[in-house]
C-alpha cells in the first residue's frame, strides 16, 4: 500500500471534520467577543450571557422549550417503548407493515409534517399553543425512540424472556423482572434523544406554535432574521452545548452493556 494514498485519505477526513466543526466553533467563540458590530476580536466577555438571563422573553422561551421537551419526551418514550415491545411479537408480515408506518415520519420532509399538523389543528379547531407543540413533538420523536429501543430488544434476543417464562414468570412478570431492566439503558437513551429532538426542533414547531408558546429555536429564528448579534451567538452556544451533552450521554446509555455498540440512527 502506498503511504501517500493513506495520507491523502487521512488529510481529507480531517479536513471534513474541520468543515463540520469550524463554523460551530467560530459561532461559539464569537459569543465571548466583546465587540457587538464586527468580526474583529476585541476581548473576552461573559456579558452577552448575562444579558440573556436578564431577558424575560428568552427565559420564557427557555421554560417553554424545557417543559415541552420533558412532557413530549416522556409521552414519546412511553408510547414508543410499549409499541416496540409489542411489535417484536408480530409475525414478519405485520411487523413490516407496522414498521413502515412508524418509520414513515422519519423519511417524510419535515416541512410536510409541520404543515399537515397545522392543517389538522386548524380544521379540528384546536388552538395553537403549548399542547399542539407537544403533540407534534411526540409525533416526530416517537419513531426515533422506537428505532433505539427496537435495536436494544433485537440485541437481547428472545432466549432470556423464554428462560424467565420457563422458570414460571408470567408474561407481565417477564416484562417487569427481565425485559424492562435489560432495555432500560435503551429507554433512557430514547428519552434523551427525543428530548434533544424536541429542544432542537425548528421546522415543525414553526408551523404549530402559537403566539405565547415560542420555543428557543423559534426565538433564535426571530433574531437571526434580524441579523447577526452577540446575543444570538450566546443563545445558540447554549443550545449547542446542551445538545452535545445530551447526545453524548444518550450515546453512552445506548451503548451500555449493548452487545455490538453499533451506531443506529
Amino acid at each position: 500500500m502506498k503511504t501517500w494514498r493513506r495520507h491523502t485519505l487521512t488529510g481529507y477526513s480531517w479536513l471534513m471534520l474541520v468543515f463540520l466543526y469550524l463554523p460551530i466553533s467560530i459561532l461559539m467563540l464569537y459569543s465571548f467577543n466583546d465587540s457587538r458590530i464586527n468580526a474583529t476580536w476585541s476581548g473576552f466577555t461573559w456579558k452577552w450571557y448575562v444579558s440573556l438571563f436578564d431577558n424575560r422573553q428568552v427565559m420564557q422561551a427557555l421554560m417553554n422549550s424545557l417543559s415541552i421537551g420533558v412532557i413530549s419526551s416522556v409521552l414519546a418514550t412511553v408510547l414508543g417503548t410499549a409499541a416496540s415491545l409489542a411489535i417484536k411479537h408480530y409475525s414478519l408480515r405485520w411487523r413490516t407493515i407496522v414498521n413502515g408506518l412508524i418509520y414513515l415520519p422519519i423519511v417524510i420532509p419535515e416541512i410536510m409534517m409541520g404543515l399537515a399538523l397545522l392543517v389538522l389543528f386548524s380544521q379540528a379547531h384546536i388552538e395553537l399553543g403549548k399542547w399542539t407543540l407537544i403533540m407534534a413533538h411526540v409525533t416526530f420523536s416517537m419513531p426515533y425512540v422506537m428505532v433505539i429501543i427496537s435495536g436494544r430488544l433485537a440485541d437481547m434476543g428472545k432466549e432470556l424472556e423464554e428462560a424467565a417464562q420457563d422458570l414460571g414468570a408470567t408474561p407481565w412478570g417477564t416484562l417487569r423482572h427481565v425485559t424492562l431492566p435489560l432495555i432500560m439503558p435503551g429507554i433512557i437513551a430514547g428519552f434523551l434523544m427525543s428530548f434533544t429532538l424536541s429542544l432542537d426542533d425548528f421546522i415543525i414547531s414553526f408551523f404549530v406554535a402559537g403566539p405565547n408558546s415560542t420555543t428557543l429555536p423559534l426565538y433564535i429564528y426571530g433574531l437571526v432574521k434580524r441579523g447577526v448579534s452577540p446575543e444570538v451567538n450566546a443563545l445558540s452556544t447554549l443550545l449547542i452545548v446542551s445538545t452535545v451533552l445530551l447526545v453524548i450521554i444518550a450515546e453512552l446509555f445506548r451503548r451500555k452493556d449493548s452487545k455490538n455498540g453499533q451506531i443506529h440512527f
Binding site: E159, L160, E162, A163, D166, L167, A169, V178, P181, L182
Partner: peptide, 18 residues
C-alpha cells in the same frame, strides 16, 4: 410455558445478566 412443571437448560444458558 410458565405453568408447565418442567424446566429448561438453554444452549447459551440464558442467564440473566442483570
Amino acid at each position: 410455558p410458565y405453568q408447565r412443571d418442567m424446566n429448561m437448560v438453554f444452549q447459551q444458558y440464558a442467564l440473566f445478566p442483570h
